Amino acid sequence: MKIDRLISIILLLLERKKVSAKELSETFEVSLRTIYRDIDTINMSGIPIISTSGVNGGFQIMDNYKVDKKVFSASDIVTLLRGLESVSAVTNREDIINTLVKVRSLIPSEHTNDIELKSNQILIDLQPWRGNPKLQTFLNNINEALEKQQLITFDYFDRNGKTSSRKIEPYKLMLKAHSWYIQGFCLEKQDFRLFKLSRMSSLQILNESYTLRELPPIISEFTDMMDKKQVTVKLLIHTSARDKVIDYCGSENIFPYGEDYFIALLPFIDDDSGYNLILSFGDKCQCIEPIHVRDELIRRIHNLAKLYD
């Protein structure tokens, strides 16, 4: 008796209201006697299957059991529905629809409205408001390469402005700080690397497969970023920019200063991304300390102003 057939029967019964013994026999190409034996085995495992006779008879899993803790609770199903909707940005829409149908088949009719209502109370939309129009295509292509375990190639523009052609074994798509990354084994460097999708161009899936390697637990690019010396900068913020600054330092690090300003204590890493963040607040933000950060901001502002002289 094959375990994969038993699992397939369970999934089919979860997905369908009722399935006849004959249909199961034809689907799995086994005898009716084997199907009855499989049903007995599934029953003994603790999943209650009932049978009805007659023209419209067949096997079905008890409705109440479909949301019992032995399979999935109502809360579990709500979490699954929310999660599936949130990954629609990186998965083929047809795949999402098929999976959602299967998950919703776990819901007895008397719980449908309640679970659907709760699953729609939280929306996790990973799609950017605006940005690189090729991002969605890259996500779909990389997701396909991951599923088929195929190599990908692309041109890459790194943080230092250097362009190179890369050929990698893709391993993991990651969303970090509003940006998408692919972790993969670079065949040129013979090591795992992290690539930002917005810096890619000319991405192609190759008709070449690869053998999976052991994925390292630490992503070096993120680790290097966090290992840099982090300081706290003191900013004078106009009230009109308060909500934007809260996203980066939290309301507990913002204090009133007069009628129209606030003092904000912002975690800061001394690199381009840190300075660009402060400059993105425009004339609604002034760095008070430390002095070396303030001086570097002044230098960058002067250089920017020269471009428009």
Rank of each mutant, 00 (worst) to 15 (best):
R166Y: 02
R166I: 06
E169C: 06
Y171C: 05
Y171L: 01
K172P: 00
K172I: 04
L173I: 04
M174S: 07
M174P: 00
M174H: 02
L175Q: 05
A177E: 13
H178K: 14
H178D: 13
W180A: 11
Y181E: 03
I182E: 01
G184M: 05
G184T: 03
G184Y: 05
C186P: 10
L187Y: 10
E188A: 12
K189W: 01
K189R: 14
Q190A: 04
F192R: 04
R193Q: 10
L194H: 04
L194N: 12
F195D: 08
K196T: 12
L197C: 01
L197E: 00
L197V: 02
L197T: 00
S198G: 05
S198I: 10
S198D: 15
R199A: 07
M200N: 02
M200K: 04
S202M: 03
L203S: 01
L203P: 03
L203C: 00
L203H: 03
Q204P: 00
Q204I: 05
Q204S: 09
I205R: 01
I205Y: 03
I205G: 04
I205A: 04
L206H: 03
N207R: 13
N207H: 12
E208N: 09
E208Q: 12
S209I: 07
S209N: 07
Y210T: 02
T211N: 09
L212M: 13
L212Y: 13
L212T: 15
L212G: 14
R213C: 04
R213L: 15
R213E: 01
E214R: 12
E214I: 10
E214M: 07
L215Q: 15
L215D: 06
L215A: 07
L215S: 05
L215Y: 13
P216T: 07
P217E: 15
P217N: 11
I218S: 07
I218L: 14
I219E: 15
I219Y: 14
I219L: 14
F222A: 06
F222H: 07
T223F: 11
T223S: 10
T223N: 09
D224Q: 05
D224T: 04
D224C: 05
M225S: 08
M226S: 11
M226C: 05
D227S: 14
D227N: 15
D227I: 04
K228Y: 03
K229Y: 00
Q230P: 02
V231D: 11
V231F: 09
V231T: 13
T232H: 03
T232L: 10
T232S: 13
V233Y: 07
V233R: 08
V233S: 09
V233C: 09
V233K: 09
L236H: 12
L236Q: 08
L236C: 06
I237E: 07
H238N: 11
H238C: 06
T239F: 06
T239G: 13
A241N: 12
R242I: 08
R242E: 11
D243C: 01
D243E: 13
K244H: 12
K244M: 12
V245T: 08
D247W: 01
D247H: 12
G250K: 11
S251A: 15
S251Q: 15
E252T: 10
N253E: 03
N253T: 03
